[in-house]
Deep mutational scan, measured.
Amino acid sequence: RPMNAFMVWARIHRPALAKANPAANNAEISVQLGLEWNKLSEEQKKPYYDEAQKIKE
C-alpha cells in the first residue's frame, strides 16, 4: 500500500522525535507525530501530498 502524505512526512520526522523522547514508545511517538502534523498548514503539507501522489503513480 503506498504511503499517504502523513506517512511521507512522518518517515522524515520520526527519528528526530524518537531521539528527543527516548523514553517514548512507538505508539506515543505516533500520537505526537499526529499532533505535530495537524498543526501544519495546508501549504506546509502540500509537498508531502505531492510526494504521496508521485508514489501512487
Rank of each mutant, 00 (worst) to 15 (best):
Arg1Tyr: 12
Arg1Lys: 15
Arg1Thr: 14
Arg1Gly: 10
Arg1Ala: 14
Arg1His: 13
Pro2Glu: 14
Pro2Ala: 07
Pro2Asp: 12
Pro2Asn: 09
Met3Trp: 12
Met3Tyr: 12
Met3Pro: 13
Asn4Val: 08
Asn4Ile: 11
Asn4Thr: 15
Ala5Cys: 02
Ala5Trp: 02
Ala5Met: 02
Met7Pro: 02
Met7Gly: 06
Val8Trp: 03
Val8Cys: 07
Trp9Lys: 00
Trp9Pro: 00
Trp9Cys: 01
Trp9Thr: 00
Trp9Phe: 15
Ala10Lys: 03
Ala10Gln: 07
Arg11Tyr: 13
Arg11Ala: 15
Ile12Thr: 07
His13Pro: 00
His13Glu: 04
His13Arg: 15
Arg14Phe: 11
Arg14Lys: 09
Arg14Pro: 00
Arg14Leu: 06
Pro15Phe: 07
Pro15Tyr: 07
Pro15Ala: 12
Pro15Asn: 07
Pro15Arg: 08
Ala16Lys: 13
Leu17Cys: 04
Leu17Gln: 03
Ala18Tyr: 07
Ala18Arg: 15
Ala18Pro: 01
Ala18Asp: 04
Ala18His: 10
Lys19Arg: 05
Lys19Ser: 09
Lys19Glu: 10
Lys19Asp: 07
Asn21Ser: 06
Asn21Leu: 08
Asn21Phe: 12
Asn21Arg: 06
Pro22Gly: 03
Pro22Trp: 03
Ala23Glu: 12
Ala23Leu: 14
Ala23Phe: 14
Ala24His: 06
Ala24Cys: 06
Ala24Asp: 04
Asn25Gly: 11
Asn26Asp: 14
Asn26Met: 11
Asn26Tyr: 12
Ala27Cys: 07
Ala27Lys: 15
Ala27Arg: 13
Glu28Ser: 07
Glu28Val: 06
Glu28Gln: 12
Glu28Gly: 03
Glu28Pro: 02
Ile29Met: 04
Ser30Asp: 14
Val31Trp: 12
Val31Ile: 14
Gln32Asp: 02
Leu33Met: 05
Leu33Thr: 01
Leu33Trp: 01
Gly34Gln: 13
Gly34Val: 15
Gly34Cys: 11
Gly34Ala: 15
Leu35Lys: 11
Leu35Phe: 09
Leu35Tyr: 06
Leu35Pro: 01
Glu36Met: 15
Glu36Thr: 10
Trp37Arg: 00
Trp37Asn: 00
Trp37Cys: 00
Asn38Gly: 13
Lys39Phe: 04
Lys39Cys: 05
Lys39Tyr: 04
Lys39Asp: 05
Lys39Ala: 09
Lys39Met: 07
Leu40Ser: 01
Leu40His: 01
Leu40Pro: 01
Leu40Gly: 00
Leu40Trp: 02
Glu42Tyr: 15
Glu43Lys: 11
Glu43Gln: 11
Gln44Ala: 11
Gln44Arg: 05
Lys45Phe: 01
Lys45Ala: 02
Lys45Thr: 03
Lys45Glu: 00
Lys45Tyr: 01
Lys46Asp: 02
Pro47Tyr: 10
Pro47Trp: 08
Pro47Leu: 05
Pro47Asp: 04
Tyr48Ala: 01
Tyr49Trp: 08
Tyr49Cys: 04
Tyr49Asn: 04
Tyr49His: 08
Asp50Val: 13
Asp50Ile: 14
Glu51Tyr: 11
Ala52Trp: 12
Gln53Ile: 13
Gln53Phe: 05
Gln53Ala: 15
Gln53Asp: 12
Gln53Lys: 15
Lys54Met: 10
Lys54Leu: 11
Lys54Ala: 12
Lys54Gln: 11
Ile55His: 08
Ile55Phe: 07
Ile55Trp: 06
Lys56His: 15
Glu57Lys: 04
Glu57Gln: 09
Glu57Pro: 09
